[in-house]
Design a binder for these strands. Structure first.
Lengths: 380, 380
DNA sequence: CTAGTTATTTCTACGTCAGAACTAATAGGG
DNA sequence: CCCTATTAGTTCTGACGTAGAAATAACTAG
């Protein structure tokens, strides 16, 4: 099947396709209500999309009302397009192959021993090719995400964890793979993935908080990502949380980085126990009742709750989504997190709805793929 | 002149009128660029608006390029409609009479000795009638703002400072004045006024912080107010700022209310000096170098800076607007505020653009009028 | 005085929409 | 088993809004 042409779509036709992509199978009647168009217009608008194969009629009878003529839901074909997403960390490139709906088809990693732009570009290009080779169809576009400041969806202005300044990563990968490549900030990418296909979907306003190697914060308001030129600095990551907490590398006592990162929690437990303890082991010890680990983890959980409170107080979201490699903290220290949340919330306030992502790096790589999907679907 | 009919306007005609209302005189050519319509459409769309008197051609030659045929800017007639805005505080009702563009034509206050809903409604209705009587033309609508939770733009669910629960203030005022009345939260109203006609105008995203009897926080993102059902609780007002600060009435040590409100600052300086000192006197003393006052005020300034930093870090605004009766603090303790701001910002981050409103209660009352203007102009 | 530039108007062809009338497919009741 | 009510989808048409071209207007710069 020839790939369905999203490019030339415009106006209401595009809106129809986008609504179906984002909100699963939808009948013409539902689309007419959502888009505020007449039923007749929907017939007219969907016909060329069905002819082009971009939409198909599915037999999935919705569980709704049983009276009247049954609706004929329309859906996209997720497998009509495939995308590769890569998240670059300090030591590994994590890659996924996804469908048009960001369903993960395959995943692969590649170690990054050398941080030089050329070495990284070579490794990432190899990873992309490997995933593309395993794809059942041609890859439509590639998304790459990393912690740092990216402009023009292509050029890395600054990536501290790689020691990069002004690296034209997009061009380097385009020339190596021959595929369309978009580069983006990693938190931006994860926020957009959460927005379009994840736990933030359907919420007009939500906040995303990630804990892992660092602390990330993303915001969607009125259905669009909120960002500015400083967003990639991760300004919320040094937000003060616990005046009696340990200092971070930048000297902020008890800031989010000092309280919530994997390294900080693991180090604190290691020091307390007098031996090297990894993050997951530290959480295991806390769960098993080790008092020192429990104290560190509860302090972190309380700090996380206060961070959620600050985010909710300032951004008034419908939901708060927690993610990142260290997100297990929210499970292990759930009570402490709730306590921290309530400490900085008015007793009359409703608790924010809190959703949790998988701690896997696959989520980040999927986020990168979503940026590629968005670029393909929205054009430019 | 008959009042221009905004009601029946719809679609692009409405967009034209709204753009002109918000962005001053605009030529047809500029409107065509802004609204992405052809020049011909602009002629067609503006003709009925000019005929109806809603728009007029002004002779204000713009200072722009001097080549080619001069543009004929279009403008609304601000004096075509008048609005009353009232802000209710614990002891006074502050009222203003404004034009369609929220220009203040007159203002008046009325004391509120009795907090009972009937007494307040009587007093506010009297204030509205007084301002309406002094209006050069009929008053189109009335806006009323107060600290509390308001639903349906009419019913006060909760207003702690008045001790109110479930007061149908809108109905009470409508029956007393015979005018259309909209009721709203005060911070919401000031945020909308700042958005449409004030220091936030033109910014897609900005944060508003008010300091006075309390601490208020409002957010506009992507050109729309961000709010949720808890927004009226003023959740940011107990945000922790200084672990060594005084406690607020709710027991939060060094929270925004404890650090930034007029009462708290005046009390701290009074205690330090052993005599009763009013807020403005406390700021005067700090300016004149009184060490105790200086310390309290600088602590407050630093806390304000950290509050601005938290707001900017979490909401990524283009601008931050400071307002409220106590906003002089930002002037008197500017250096401390900057220090507090920088303490919680990355050195690489740009300083947010900070604008300051007048400390007058007129600003709040004008905010209430803007809610009435919006309701009139946008319909419902 | 002429050429160049920008703004605005007028007119027309085209495309999109809502709405009405109609067909299709189901459930439920007698 | 037929009739009615209900909801979904199609076809057609008239109304409306738009872009685009062409004409006109009003100025500046030389």
């Amino acid at each position: 099947m020839t790939p369905a042409p999203w490019g030339p779509l415009s106006g209401p036709g595009h809106a129809v396709a986008l609504d179906v992509l984002l909100d699963g199978p939808l009948s013409r009647a539902e689309l007419s209500r959502r888009l505020d168009l007449s039923a007749g217009s929907l017939t007219r608008l969907t016909k060329p999309l069905l002819d082009a194969g971009l939409l198909v009629e599915v037999d999935d009878s919705p569980a709704g009302s049983r009276v009247g003529r049954p609706s004929r839901p329309l859906d996209i074909v997720p497998e009509a397009h495939h995308f590769v997403g890569v998240k670059i960390t300090g030591d590994t490139a994590h890659g996924v192959l996804t469908t048009l709906r960001a369903g993960v088809v395959a995943s692969a990693d590649a170690p990054l021993d050398d941080h030089s732009p050329f070495a990284v570009a070579d490794t990432v290009a190899g990873l992309i090719s490997e995933l593309a080779a395993g794809s059942p169809a041609d890859v439509t576009a590639v998304g790459v995400a990393l912690g740092g400041h990216v402009v023009e969806a292509s050029d890395v202005v600054r990536a501290p964890f790689l020691g990069w300044k002004d690296v034209p990563l997009g061009d380097m990968l385009r020339s190596r793979t021959g595929l369309p490549v978009v580069v983006s900030n990693d938190v931006t990418a994860l926020t957009e993935a959460t927005h379009w296909f994840g736990a933030g979907h359907g919420a007009a306003t939500f906040s995303l908080i990630t804990v892992g190697a660092g602390v990330g914060f993303g915001l969607v308001a009125h259905g669009r990502l909120v960002t500015n030129e400083d967003a990639s600095l991760g300004l919320a990551s040094h937000h003060p949380l616990d005046p009696s907490g340990p200092p971070c590398f930048a000297g902020h006592r008890g800031c989010a980085v000092a309280m919530l990162t994997i390294r900080s929690i693991a180090t604190q437990v290691s020091v307390a126990l007098g031996r090297e303890v990894a993050y997951d082991e530290a959480l295991d010890l806390a769960e098993d009742g080790d008092p020192a680990a429990r104290r560190v983890v509860d302090d972190a959980g309380r700090a996380l709750g206060r961070f959620v409170a600050a985010a909710a107080n300032f951004t008034m979201p419908e939901r708060v989504v927690l993610g990142g490699e260290g997100v297990r903290l929210a499970d292990v220290a759930r009570e402490a997190m709730q306590a921290g949340l309530h400490a900085d919330r008015d007793p009359l306030a409703h608790d924010p709805v809190i959703a949790t992502l998988s701690p896997s790096f696959t989520e980040w790589a999927r986020g990168a793929a979503v940026i590629a999907i968005q670029t393909f679907v929205l054009g430019t």
